[in-house]
Each structure stands twice: as structure tokens, then as C-alpha cells.
Design a protein around this nucleic acid. Structure first.
Lengths: 204, 204
DNA sequence: TTGACAAGTGACACGATGTCATTTAATATA
DNA sequence: TATATTAAATGACATCGTGTCACTTGTCAA
């Protein structure tokens, strides 16, 4: 969390800083972002930065949290609208998230957050189950007992594997990593959510 | 991927390097790890490091992938053993992963990978759905229409929320972040997998 | 007006990264 | 074997970024 001194700052100064940070964190992911760039852009001295924040990450997480705040109230209102149906509410938030992306900077900000922090690592762990090569993946597909699965065709096996390792969060990541169109992203999301609803296995 | 020169290295030199890297990446997460420490430990000159790898991350991902390789064959053999039942196979791999952790260094290596890269970010995105404070969480719990859900008690609402945002991967992260015992971690995993199997919603 | 405390400032020490000119080893060629 | 050619090894160095600290400036109460 930023220090109190940051919140004591006059609004315009706070905003300038936030704007400069947003710019830098849209340009590159956290690891490559530099405090020097931010303070240069915002015209504040180096020492002041450390008066306001512990470090780079402190500022970064603050920005992310600010972004998340608004979504939470949307989620709650969607829950009300859909009579407590979590999946409908979540789908509405997801759709809103994709459609209401204000500008490219905002988009890059999220992209940097989601990809660089999660994607490479998740890819590696995925190989545990999917293997490195397509042969290994094929072998696994063959091995899966599709009779027990509640699936219409082989393509959905892939969806099921995805769902098992993640679901909603994974969909965000995928949207940005594969540069899916909003429509495709939402379509995938809905398919996976329906699978979750109905259960991955056929009823006994 | 490491460069060819790395693979041309005599085995003992390669192993020394890998060991030194393992030590460093167990000590601290990727962002704080230093090449200087690794080459000092492995007694190789700085220039050589860049003869073998593009950068820190290149080496890091190589190590992670090596770790993942072995798990993939286990997953395949478990699929065979359980007649293609993915969830049984996955649960077996998860259990094996936790129980066969060779030493503390290995454990810290994974912990650094899973936590520092995913945890903080996931926490932030979680607030979209769970909110910051317990009031917000309570409000949401109240709003959820439990009649439609295939749950035995209110406690499982939380599990369902978790499952919706992730599942297996999330379980790894949670295991390390909350320092769960192996038994508790596996217990959680199994509960969530069963929910997935049966579907999150009651049958119409 | 003065004293005390909070905030602002920027030079600097420290450390890390990636490069590059140069040396050394390995391999092919005649 | 001698020589040419290519690959690998090396470590000094330029560059950049972080976090600190002694010092200055501002604020506000007594």
C-alpha cells in the first residue's frame, strides 16, 4: 500500500503521478518498468517517490487494485439482476470488461499484467498435462475416455482440459495472449461456463 | 531456450551451472535473482553466461520446463491406469507432486515460481468478485442463490467461487501461499474436483 | 517568533545487466 | 605438420536503475 503521504498529496499531483505510472506500466511489464521513467514523466524528484511508495510494485498493485474496485460493484449489481446466478453475473462482468475497454493504454496495461506474470509460467505448468509436442497431446487425447465425458465432440476435450486448470482467470489471459476478438473470447468463456454448470462428466 | 553452446557444454559444467541456478532461484523469485550470484557460485565468467543464455529468464524457464517434463509422463501413465479418467489422473499427479517433493530447495523453487508470479496478481483480480473486505464478501454470499447450487452447506460457496476462477493451478498456488499441509491441500483439491465432476448447478 | 515535526529533494553509493574487443581452443584443410 | 577458419571463452567496461541519506523547505501549534 502507498504511504499516507501519497494520499495527502494535492489531487493534481497525485493524478499526474498515477497517469505517468499508467503510461509506464502500459509500455512494459512490471519487471522492465523503471521508476526513473515515471518520475521523469511526472516531474517529481526521486526522493519523493520513495516518500509515497515502498517501491515499484507498491505503486503497481495500487493501480491494479484501483482498476479492480469498480468491477466489484458491477459484479454485485449483476448478481442482483440475475437473481444470484453467479455464472450469469460473472459472464456479464467478463463481457463488460472486454467491451468497455476505454483505450489502448488501458488495454496494454492489462495485457502486461496478465501475460507477463502468468502466461509463460502457466504454459510451462501446462506441459505437465499437455506435454511439449503435439504428439504427446494427441496421445493424451486418445487416452481420454470420452464416453464418460459430457462432450459433443473431440474439440471440447481441449476445453475441458483448460477448465480443469483454470477457468475465468485463464480466459482473461487467453484473450490477451491469443489476441482473440471480443466475440471469440466471450464465446469461449460461455462454452466453458456451460460445461462447468452441467458438470464435466455425464450423469450416472 | 538456451543456446546450442549450452548443450555442447561438458556435463559436469552444465550441471554445476544448473545447480547454481537452482540455488539462486530457490533463494529469491525471478525478479530478484541475480546472474552475478549464479556465475559466482558456478565459477563461470560473465561473458560465458551470455554465450549460453539470452538472459535470466531464459535460464529460468529452462529449469522450469525440465521440472515439468517428468510430470508429463507420470500424467500419461496415470491416465492409462485410470482408464482415461482425467480427474483421477490429475489428482494422482497432484498428490505425487506434493508428496514427492525431494527437498527444501526444490520446494522453495516452486514456491517462488507460483507465488511471486501469480499470487499477488490473482488476489487483485479476485477482488473483482470477492471484494476487498469481509462485508462485501458477506453481501455476495447472501446474494447467491444457493437453491440452484449443488451444495451441501454454505462453506462450499467459497469453493465454488474459487473453482470458477481457477482450479488445479489455483490449488498449487494456494498450497504454497497458505502453507497448507499436504493432506489439507489434497483434500481441497478433491473437493473441488468432485464439484467440477458433478457440475456446479443442480440438475433441472 | 520559535520550535518541532512532516515532507521534499537530489547527489550518491551500490549493484546488476549486457556488450565487445580480445584471447584461446577446436576443427578443417592443404 | 603447419596453417587457416570458425567457435567458444573471457572479463573489463559502459550504462542504467534502485534505494538511501543528509540536508532543505514547508507547516502548524504553542
Amino acid at each position: 500500500m502507498p504511504k499516507q503521504t501519497f494520499f495527502n498529496l494535492p489531487e493534481h499531483k497525485r493524478n499526474t503521478l498515477i497517469e505517468a505510472a499508467g503510461k509506464e506500466f502500459s509500455r512494459v511489464p512490471l519487471a522492465e518498468a523503471s521508476i526513473s521513467n515515471i518520475i521523469k514523466e511526472a516531474h517529481i524528484p526521486r526522493g519523493s517517490f520513495y516518500q509515497y511508495f515502498e517501491n515499484k510494485e507498491d505503486l503497481y498493485l495500487y493501480l491494479l487494485k484501483e482498476e479492480a474496485k469498480g468491477r466489484n460493484s458491477l459484479f454485485i449489481s449483476m448478481l442482483k439482476k440475475h437473481n444470484g446466478d453467479i455464472i450469469l453475473a460473472m459472464t456479464a462482468v467478463y463481457r463488460d470488461f472486454l467491451e468497455k475497454m476505454p483505450d489502448d493504454q488501458e488495454r496494454d496495461f492489462f495485457k502486461n499484467a496478465l501475460l507477463n506474470v502468468t502466461h509463460k509460467l502457466e504454459n510451462v505448468f501446462m506441459t505437465i498435462f499437455e506435454g511439449n509436442n503435439s504428439e504427446s497431446m494427441n496421445q493424451i487425447s486418445q487416452l481420454i475416455n470420452t464416453e464418460k465425458l459430457n462432450i459433443k465432440d473431440d474439440k471440447e476435450i481441449h476445453h475441458i482440459i483448460q477448465i480443469i486448470t483454470a477457468v475465468a482467470f485463464r480466459n482473461f489471459v487467453e484473450k490477451f495472449s491469443k489476441e482473440l476478438s471480443d466475440e471469440t473470447a466471450i464465446e469461449h468463456f460461455v462454452i466453458e461456463m456451460n460445461l462447468l454448470k452441467q458438470g464435466l462428466y455425464k450423469r450416472e
